[in-house]
Design a protein around this nucleic acid. Structure first.
Lengths: 262, 262
DNA sequence: CAGTGGTCTAGACCACTGC
DNA sequence: CAGTGGTCTAGACCACTGT
């Protein structure tokens, strides 16, 4: 009765140029790809692999470290190293800000999450007046000060994104937009009531590894990038009336867009 | 005359709970954020840091490993560890497939890159008939076979993306689309000539860490994710006539989209 | 308690770079 | 050649998990 590792893993090739820890990672990666280990399964412990391959512990840890960097494995102190579970993904459609989605009493995030059978939460709401960063100022037409609305979004208890909306202060001060709860339809509905009929949005998307702060805020496993989305809302006069800066856990989202063939 | 490390880095806090290698990483990260080390600068060598902090070499290497995972540093064997340079970013606009961009003799990639002052190349072109994967088949209406057009794109010698276009074989066989060079305006122009007037595109965007194959193909530094983009082209009958599966080096791109406020 | 991963040491030898 | 990072060993002690 061979231990777990022996049953599913082979031997090293001592003639290979490939570093031993890479060979070990290769074997584990292949076993994961072939579903011999499935999502959430525990991988062999460091001790088991040390004995199976006859290497030192650091070599095994280097192999695990590679897999974690690739997003294939996560370690849990005192428990083991596991195949990283793939959580359900939230699909953001490009019509999510269409006016017809704005006539309910709840936010777009809440409505959409409940429709998908998830439990949405909003967290750490904070509304402040600030001096804008250079980037935000440039996008908003260089206002001296802005209203910043920060919040974090969770699905079924898991943080998935946090966002800050910036509006020129002269436009937002002493309006419902400056209240913690801006009311049904959110700030876009309020902007339109105030005469800023929205014409279109521009979104810019980047992907990168998270900062330590982002890792904490979103409880990110290692090997999980973030999607950085900056959305600018334009009114029918062509003025940028809001910029929303969003950082999303990349493993929780698919973004979907429609492009005209023109 | 203190060595480089002493001049820019402080001391450890032995009373802190924070692991020593994390404290070292914190100091280097802060120095990078504050531009005390700039893009492309060499960080202190492992030996220097070992002496400066009075720790063992593995501890210093762990600190560097953290920074590399965050995409802040890259190591070069025999040379040193450097602040990761931020290469110029290519902006993909959402009108990049508009018909008006299709009347030149060159591909969209080539035209756009030259306009931006870069030197574009296309690489490893391969045209094959294949059985589609389950995902591709589902998107194309379950054809038994597809034509697959693979290629890699480079800017100024640097690989930035590789892509595969899939078309139902009954639609593409024995047409210019099956030729290595499909002619001016690319396969979209040919599809329209063949009566498939394009109506719109759908794009799905994900971000994740690259597989080892993708690391090789795109020469990715560690700590650089990929953007995975799947575009489906629909004709005016609502039929999906092409799916293009693209993997991009995330540090080389910003994707930009316009959304109607409807 | 035993088993797990997290941190750290003090060496060793190798491969690559630049002078 | 000296200096750099890449790999590997054989220990040690700690913190966290589950029984």
């Amino acid at each position: 009765m061979p231990p777990l590792a022996s049953g599913l893993l082979g031997a090293l090739d001592p003639t290979s140029d490939r570093a031993v820890f890479r060979q070990i990672a290769d074997q584990l990666r292949e076993a994961i790809d072939k579903q011999r280990f499935r999502e959430g399964d525990k991988l062999p412990s460091e001790t088991e692999l040390v004995e199976h391959f006859g290497v030192s512990r650091m070599t095994v840890r280097n192999a695990f470290s590679l897999l974690q960097g690739e997003g294939l494995a996560v370690s849990e102190h005192g428990k083991g190293v596991f195949v990283r579970p793939r959580p359900p993904v939230r699909r953001l459609a490009s019509d999510r800000f269409a006016r017809r989605h704005r006539d309910q009493g709840k936010s777009a995030f809440t409505v959409e999450a409940e429709a998908a059978g998830s439990r949405p939460e909003v967290d750490g709401l904070e509304v402040k007046e600030e001096r804008p960063s250079q980037d935000i100022a440039a996008r908003l037409g260089s206002p001296r000060k802005v209203l910043a609305r920060r919040r974090r979004y969770l699905l079924d208890g898991r943080p998935v994104e946090f966002a800050t909306s910036y509006l020129p202060l002269d436009l937002a001060r002493n309006t419902p937009i400056a209240e913690p709860n801006p009311g049904p339809g959110g700030i876009y509905a309020r902007l339109e009531e105030m005469g800023h009929r929205l014409d279109h949005f521009e979104e810019e998307i980047r992907a990168r590894m998270p900062s330590p702060t982002e890792v904490r805020t979103l409880h990110l496993a290692s090997g999980v990038p973030v999607i950085h989305l900056v959305r600018t809302a334009f009114n029918t006069d062509g003025r940028a009336v809001e910029v929303c800066d969003t950082v999303m856990a990349a493993d929780a989202y698919v973004l979907a867009y429609q492009l005209p063939a023109t």
